[in-house]
Simulated assay, not measured.
Amino acid sequence: MSQPLLRTNVQNVTDRTSNPFGLRPPFDRSGPNERTAVFGYGDANADFHVIGDHPGLHGGKRTGVPFTEIANGNAIQGVLRDPDIDFASGPRDRPVLENCYLSYVHMCSLPDGHQPTASDYAELERYFDAELRAINAHILLPVGEQATDHVLREYTTQRRRFDLNMADLHATEIRGRGFMVVPIRNPSEWDDDDREAIVETLRGILASDYRQTKGVATRIG
């Protein structure tokens, strides 16, 4: 399927929480009792889009919901459930999300212990791009080095400015081409202050007129 055709077929189906755009994974390498893919999930009209790497790293191979099941995913959910953020509520395996959407750069599941290859990421890039543009959020929150690298390369003009030191990039605000990008260090690497740092950054964004961010970033990106 070509990229233009995929974009043409994506429609904003707001009454579906999981895979609202009806994407179909191009391959199945999942293990027993695992979902073929962990599709995007949440509010399809969200202003905040949390972007993980792949199901093996950030969870959901059995629930089918990003950022569930495992420690990395639960840590991100903990941020989204913070009373001052209040993006997530309800069951952790199938949270109710408001103003927030979750997805992965590499949505397909792989057997435990396997990592996506460069060609795997490339094969799924058009799916991720189509979904990101359909959601059209104001704030992109890539989690971990792979997702941050991809988002900075594809949706900002500033990748060359950074060496991908996630400790330095964590919870910072970076102007993109029509987006504000706020990288999040992988939770398994968090220091004592990292959780509070991302919560504090999100508090500040929510307290601001962040919906103007998109227009400003478009003009200067």
Results as ranks from 00 to 15, higher is better:
residue 85 I to V: 13
residue 195 R to L: 12
residue 52 G to C: 02
residue 194 D to M: 02
residue 110 L to N: 04
residue 67 F to S: 04
residue 116 P to M: 08
residue 154 E to D: 11
residue 87 F to A: 02
residue 63 T to L: 07
residue 64 G to C: 11
residue 70 I to A: 01
residue 119 S to P: 00
residue 96 V to N: 13
residue 50 V to T: 06
residue 67 F to Y: 11
residue 128 F to L: 02
residue 193 D to G: 01
residue 153 R to W: 06
residue 47 D to H: 14
residue 138 H to T: 13
residue 156 T to Y: 06
residue 156 T to L: 03
residue 55 P to S: 04
residue 81 R to C: 10
residue 153 R to A: 11
residue 101 Y to L: 03
residue 60 G to A: 06
residue 76 I to P: 04
residue 119 S to Y: 02
residue 123 E to M: 15
residue 151 V to D: 06
residue 105 V to N: 02
residue 146 Q to T: 12
residue 156 T to D: 01
residue 100 C to Q: 08
residue 147 A to H: 05
residue 90 G to D: 03
residue 132 L to K: 05
residue 145 E to W: 00
residue 56 G to M: 00
residue 93 D to Y: 12
residue 174 I to F: 11
residue 115 Q to F: 15
residue 168 D to V: 13
residue 138 H to Q: 11
residue 116 P to Y: 11
residue 85 I to Q: 02
residue 186 N to Q: 09
residue 164 L to G: 10
residue 74 N to A: 12
residue 161 R to H: 15
residue 177 R to S: 12
residue 85 I to E: 02
residue 118 A to F: 10
residue 88 A to T: 04
residue 171 A to S: 15
residue 134 A to L: 13
residue 109 S to G: 02
residue 194 D to Y: 08
residue 193 D to P: 00
residue 164 L to Y: 14
residue 99 N to E: 13
residue 63 T to K: 00
residue 176 G to A: 06
residue 66 P to C: 11
residue 105 V to H: 05
residue 84 D to W: 00
residue 191 D to N: 14
residue 73 G to S: 07
residue 111 P to S: 09
residue 145 E to Q: 10
residue 175 R to K: 05
residue 135 I to Y: 10
residue 61 K to S: 12
residue 123 E to L: 15
residue 165 N to E: 13
residue 151 V to E: 07
residue 67 F to H: 06
residue 84 D to G: 10
residue 83 P to H: 13
residue 194 D to N: 01
residue 182 V to T: 12
residue 158 Q to E: 12
residue 167 A to S: 14
residue 75 A to H: 07
residue 137 A to N: 13
residue 179 F to I: 01
residue 95 P to C: 11
residue 137 A to G: 10
residue 49 H to S: 11
residue 48 F to H: 07
residue 161 R to P: 03
residue 144 G to K: 00
residue 75 A to R: 08
residue 95 P to I: 14
residue 80 L to W: 03
residue 96 V to D: 15
residue 154 E to C: 08
residue 115 Q to V: 12
residue 111 P to C: 12
residue 63 T to Q: 03
residue 122 A to Y: 04
residue 146 Q to L: 10
residue 50 V to Q: 02
residue 142 P to V: 01
residue 191 D to M: 14
residue 95 P to Q: 05
residue 93 D to N: 10
residue 70 I to V: 14
residue 122 A to D: 14
residue 115 Q to W: 11
residue 111 P to L: 15
residue 165 N to S: 12
residue 52 G to H: 01
residue 48 F to A: 09
residue 108 C to I: 08
residue 144 G to Q: 00
residue 133 R to W: 04
residue 76 I to Y: 06
residue 153 R to S: 11
residue 138 H to G: 05
residue 86 D to Q: 08
residue 127 Y to T: 01
residue 104 Y to F: 15
residue 171 A to C: 05
